[in-house]
Design a protein around this nucleic acid. Structure first.
Length: 269
DNA sequence: AGGGCAACCCGGACGC
DNA sequence: TGCGTCCGGGTTGCCC
């Protein structure tokens, strides 16, 4: 669900709102979303200031002036809303952080979580993640090097967070479509030219999706026109049975290592 | 090493 | 309207 471009959009918009602001109140509706008790969590977080917000893979990191970090993973279907009590969408939230009048609502955290970690714990938690797909060092040579370090089927490799971190079910299909490669191809069978196309597809799709605000369905706040701008731009994901926007042939919905997968057999080979 | 799979979790969509 | 049922899906860990 929320993947790199969606979290990057959250980071961009929330940074503008929250940097230097103090968390005035904490409300925990669902203790399981935390790694410590609700009382401890509140005591450690309340009256601390958000000094910066960063992203690592599909995680969002709220750095506090205490030196601790709130590590957020939205997993499936998690999302956020920032606004007043009246603006709040009619959904149950698991955690609410108040910044004076306005609140940051964490909604739809099922397997998702908001964990309070010190520097060491944070480092340990993120240690197994692979490199960022958009890091400066991730040029085509590095990408191909990383990809070829794994054998097996392409799509499972693309969504493997230990290999490259931040790609999920939707964008892996979009990269493959952009590159004209079927997602169930084997990595070892890909030519250099195809791997280059995959790299360029990843760069293009991710940058385009970030520019347009990702595919989250709900706005982050009232009047937010950025979030979700990419909703109608997916060309294969969740378009099973619909015509391919490039050739008109029906998009195939299939299953690959117990994941949904979408592709066009005419445009991809 | 890679593939397969169960477990985790529960709001909300859907059916009757 | 109201209640019961079941789905979704990233991640981890285990087994083969």
């Amino acid at each position: 669900m929320p993947e790199l471009p969606e979290m990057e959009t959250y980071k961009y918009l929330l940074s503008k709102e929250l940097l230097g602001r103090k968390i005035t109140e904490v409300e925990v509706e669902r203790e399981k979303s935390l790694n410590i008790s609700a009382v401890e969590f509140s005591n450690y977080v309340r009256n601390h200031t958000v000094t910066s917000i960063s992203r690592r893979a599909k995680h969002l990191l709220f750095h506090l002036d205490s030196g601790d970090t709130l590590l957020l993973h939205l997993m499936l279907g998690g999302w956020m809303f920032y606004g007043t009590e009246e603006d709040k969408p009619d959904r149950t939230s698991q955690v609410i952080l108040s910044f004076g009048e306005r609140n940051l609502y964490f909604i739809g955290l099922r397997l998702g979580y908001l964990h309070l970690l010190n520097e060491k714990e944070l480092h340990t938690r993120l240690a197994s993640l692979g490199p960022e797909p958009l890091a400066p060092g991730m040029d085509e040579h590095q990408f191909i090097h990383v990809l070829k370090s794994k054998r097996g089927v392409l799509k499972p490799a693309l969504v493997d967070q230990k290999l490259i971190a931040g790609i999920g079910n939707c964008y892996s299909d979009e990269f493959c479509f952009q590159a004209g490669i079927l997602p169930f191809r084997t990595i070892g069978d890909l030519s250099m030219e195809e791997m280059n196309r995959l790299y360029n597809g990843m760069q293009y799709i991710f940058r385009d999706a970030m520019r347009l605000g990702g595919y989250m369905e709900s706005p982050l706040f009232t009047g937010d026109t950025l979030t979700g701008g990419y909703n109608d731009h997916c060309r294969v994901y969740d378009r099973g049975g619909e015509p391919c926007l490039q050739c008109g042939q029906s998009i195939v919905q299939d299953e690959l290592s117990s994941r949904k997968v979408f592709y066009c057999t005419n445009c991809q080979s």
